[in-house]
Amino acid sequence: MIEKIKVSEDIRRPLVFAHRGLSGIFPENTMIAFKKAISAKADLIELDVTLSKDREVIVIHDDDLDRTTKLVGSVRFFESEILKDLDAGSWFSKKFKKEKIPLLTDVLGLIQKSKTDLNIEIKSTSLDDSLQVDSIENLVLDLIHQRKLKDRILISSFSWECLERIRNLDSKIKLGVLVGEESGNVQDAIAFGETVNAWSIHPSREDASEENLKLIEEKNFISVVYTVNEIDDMKKFLGRGAKGLFTNFPKEMRKLVKR
């Protein structure tokens, strides 16, 4: 039996999750967005990972490149050497044209030197049909272990199969169960979270009713709602009992939390 990962009683709450870094002001999933999130005193940075053609772990949200770069096509069709040289900032503002697509190892190096922890969301579309030596689950865990950062990492996914694979590979790393259209509802997520010994449940705004947030807390999971950017909405979901929020504006949430 897997030993239950307990939620620490002295953890700072509510938790500020910088969604794709400080992405309200800087281009998402870039090093500058991550550095600014650290400066804003976010508790965790959330980012998305997928695989390149040569099986490097790439930090990018979309499956395709056309929204955030000037290259068209699937991330998985290109080698990492090409991907990491792309301009990933100009789509947001021309002044960020020097920002590139990071590798996960780059971000882990940044986290290692900071006090901000990291939430790695593994994209469902990056999974192999069955677990392989070079599947993304193994590659992500290898990078985390190399940096000795396991205690500071939360791995989440909309693919509950992915989370189950991760748990079978590592009995201690923290897992976050994402709730959305491609997965089950909050009640299903809680039941699944118990089977994989998850640390947190991540409902959408639509799923974050006071009743659902209470259910999550009663089962000793951290509830983290995505994605909340307006101050009034932050107050609303925190008032309902959320223990954390994903936000593109972590600096504003940090100020609110302090008040």
Score class of each variant (00 low, 15 high):
L15A: 02
K150E: 15
K113D: 14
L131W: 08
E79N: 15
G109C: 06
L110R: 04
R259E: 15
N197M: 01
L149P: 09
L103E: 11
S80T: 05
K94G: 07
S93C: 01
S90P: 04
T125K: 13
P102V: 04
V49S: 12
L154P: 02
R240N: 06
S183P: 08
N248F: 13
D128L: 07
I155V: 13
E161T: 14
G24L: 06
W91C: 05
V196Y: 05
A40M: 05
R152Y: 11
F192Q: 04
L127Q: 14
I58Y: 10
V228W: 08
K95W: 01
Q187G: 01
V59M: 09
V16R: 03
R13H: 00
F96R: 01
H19T: 05
P250K: 13
F17P: 00
E137H: 07
R13C: 00
I166C: 09
Q132C: 03
L175D: 12
K243F: 01
R12L: 12
F34T: 03
H61L: 10
L175M: 12
I60L: 15
E206I: 03
G24K: 06
D151Y: 08
E99L: 03
D232P: 00
S204M: 04
K113E: 15
K53Y: 13
V257P: 06
N220F: 03
D87Q: 05
E56V: 03
K4S: 08
I45T: 06
D117N: 15
R259L: 09
K174F: 10
C162P: 03
K258P: 00
N119I: 07
T125L: 12
R167M: 02
D151V: 00
G73V: 05
K113H: 08
D63F: 06
S156M: 07
T247S: 15
L108E: 09
L71G: 02
V72K: 15
I173S: 08
L175T: 09
R205V: 03
V224S: 14
S157F: 10
A33V: 12
I45Q: 11
A198I: 01
V57T: 11
R76W: 03
W160F: 10
L110N: 02
D43N: 15
R152D: 13
L47S: 07
M31R: 10
A198Q: 03
A189C: 09
V72Y: 14
V196N: 04
L65P: 08
G180H: 04
L15N: 02
V57A: 09
D207L: 00
F96E: 07
D10L: 12
I122R: 11
N197A: 02
Q187F: 07
D85P: 00
S23T: 10
I2W: 12
S157D: 11
L169I: 08
V140C: 04
E137R: 04
A18V: 10
D64P: 00
S52E: 12
D232Q: 13
